[in-house]
Design a protein around this nucleic acid. Structure first.
Length: 256
DNA sequence: GCTCATGTTCCCCT
DNA sequence: CAGGGGAACATGAG
């Protein structure tokens, strides 16, 4: 589930439910807390008040004025708010606070929770995360493309180059930009590069209010799980191929 | 039983 | 060094 639009939705949930509230206690499974123990997390947070959450790429950043909680959601993580402090087994961490608890769930446990004790630790944990896809300026984006020798899809998926784009977002924006995901970055001209930047923003801005990459039939993403899927634009047959280790869906008829 | 899944990391090649 | 391929992680869903 979680790419940039999903994490942006989690940020909204966190802001609405947890920001400004004092943490009463923390429960967490051992293997979901990555750089300390559940006890360590609880000790650091108990009595502290969460501030406004931020997002960088697919990371949710939850400050308290002292330590900061970092959440990553892997492929199946999410945040939920519960009124009743229930001990559901699928909840991997819960921050108990007045009025309910904020729950972190990560079905396949590919994500996790990190604790940064201060700004230095925070910077260290996020050191390899590139500029956020939603905020990167066009000039910076163009600089990132310089000197790249791989495919455009691989570059867009690289979180240290541009942070937040996932497999669905990349397929969607390349389809809108009419660029074949296998194209070498070095072979793209300036107009094509500008088109990719513009479509990246369009896709993100359209997806964020939904809190996910939309799956309506007018989106490529709405067709990717359909057998014998056709292009929403030209009705040509969509193709699947592995690029940069992930399944890519694209339209060979209108993406070049 | 088999393959695949919206992510990241690590190892091995070229 | 930059990239690509593949495996691993954990747990289903089809």
């Amino acid at each position: 589930m979680p790419e940039l639009p999903d994490v942006e939705g989690f940020r909204r949930t966190f802001r609405r439910r947890a920001a400004g509230k004092q943490v009463r206690s923390v429960r967490a499974k051992d293997d979901i807390v990555r750089n300390t123990s559940p006890q360590g997390l609880g000790t650091a947070l108990k009595g502290r008040r969460f501030g406004a959450p931020e997002r960088r790429g697919k990371w949710l950043i939850c400050p308290t004025g002292g330590p900061t909680v970092l959440m990553h959601f892997g492929m199946t993580g999410k945040i939920t708010w519960s009124l009743d402090n229930g001990r559901h087994p699928r909840i991997h961490a819960a921050f108990e606070m007045p009025g309910g608890e904020l729950q972190y769930r990560s079905h396949r446990k590919l994500g996790g929770i990190w604790l940064a004790r201060d700004d230095d630790e925070l910077a260290e944990l996020l050191a390899d995360v590139g500029p956020d896809a939603l905020r990167i300026r066009e000039g910076t984006f163009m600089e990132m493309l310089e000197g790249q020798r791989g495919s455009i899809k691989a570059m867009l998926m690289d979180q240290s180059a541009v942070a937040g784009l996932g497999n669905l977002t990349c397929d969607e924006l390349l389809w809108r930009a009419r660029i074949d995901p296998r194209r070498r970055v070095a072979d793209l001209d300036d107009r094509e590069r500008a088109r990719i930047y513009r479509k990246m923003r369009d896709v993100l801005h359209a997806a964020i209010p939904e809190g996910r990459v939309p799956t309506s039939p007018s989106w490529l993403t709405g067709r990717r799980d359909v057998s014998d899927a056709t292009c929403p634009r030209c009705d040509g047959r969509l193709r699947r191929a592995t690029i940069a280790g992930r399944t890519s869906v694209f339209c060979p008829a209108c993406q070049h």
